[in-house]
């Protein structure tokens, strides 16, 4: 019957955009940002490899977009994206070894970043195993990476994050740790002392801005938190 056939055709036409494969989604994303066709082809090919291995493709596309936005030559973008993809694969191996068979994209991105900054597969595994859920592990790795950048060292950073997770601290509180560490350092504490305070769950002893409650901000102190969104 004509009306039924037309209805089915309409349904299939409506489904067509959603039925894009991951690679087609990447292609559309890159083309929308104006990347040249050759670069798009290279990145889409990498995305296809990634999808075949279960590695998320959107971080790969975003890395290419980042390079294009920074006006990096296409050849260097392709090389950087390939390197990024390799790190994602290594991160996937590390995370899967910790028992997460199908890790979410943000966890892999965080793990790749951490491993790129000297964290080992064991470090990654410790955070993944301590986390109540895979998404929380991604945040934990981001925090550990930020703490390491503030001089705490990968072992200590992972110890602090996993300790907080084992104590049952909410992920949101763990996300405050880099700011708390920075505030403590601004008050003159050494990285070792900061680590001790964080291990004791010591962030809560601070004022909300990293200052003792009631005290005035130091001259030139910058980057404080803004008001919470209503």
């Amino acid at each position: 019957m004509k009306s039924i056939g037309g209805l089915l055709t309409l349904v299939l036409l409506c489904l067509a955009p959603h039925a894009l494969t991951a690679q087609e989604g990447v292609r559309a994303q890159l083309e929308a940002r104006g990347l040249p066709a050759e670069l798009v082809g290279d990145v889409v090919a990498l995305a296809a490899d990634a999808a075949a291995q279960g590695v998320p493709t959107e971080p790969i596309a975003n890395k290419a977009i980042e390079g294009w936005a920074k006006r990096v030559p296409p050849q260097r973008i392709t090389a950087a994206v390939r390197q990024f993809y390799t790190r994602m694969v290594q991160a996937q191996i590390a995370v899967r070894a910790s028992g997460v068979a199908d890790p979410p994209g943000e966890l892999l991105a965080s793990a790749a970043e951490a491993m790129g900054r000297g964290f080992t597969q064991e470090h990654v595994g410790a955070v993944v195993e301590a986390a109540p859920e895979p998404a929380a592990a991604g945040h934990g790795l981001s925090v550990a990476t930020a703490l390491q950048a503030q001089g705490l060292g990968p072992d200590r950073a992972v110890e602090i994050v996993t300790g907080a997770m084992h104590r049952g601290q909410p992920v949101a509180e763990i996300l405050d740790m880099p700011s708390l560490a920075r505030a403590m350092q601004a008050r003159g504490l050494s990285p070792g002392q900061v680590g001790e305070q964080l291990m004791l769950g010591g962030g809560g002893m601070q004022g909300a801005h990293g200052r003792p409650p009631g005290s005035q901000p130091r001259e030139g102190q910058r980057g404080e938190r803004g008001p919470r969104r209503p």
Partner: peptide, 21 residues
């Protein structure tokens, strides 16, 4: 962090209490 393109990306971790830098 190394951005992979020869530059450096800055990283902030935003928690509920805001960002202290």
């Amino acid at each position: 962090v190394d951005d992979g393109f020869g530059g450096t990306n800055s990283v902030i971790v935003v928690g509920p209490k805001g960002v202290v830098r």
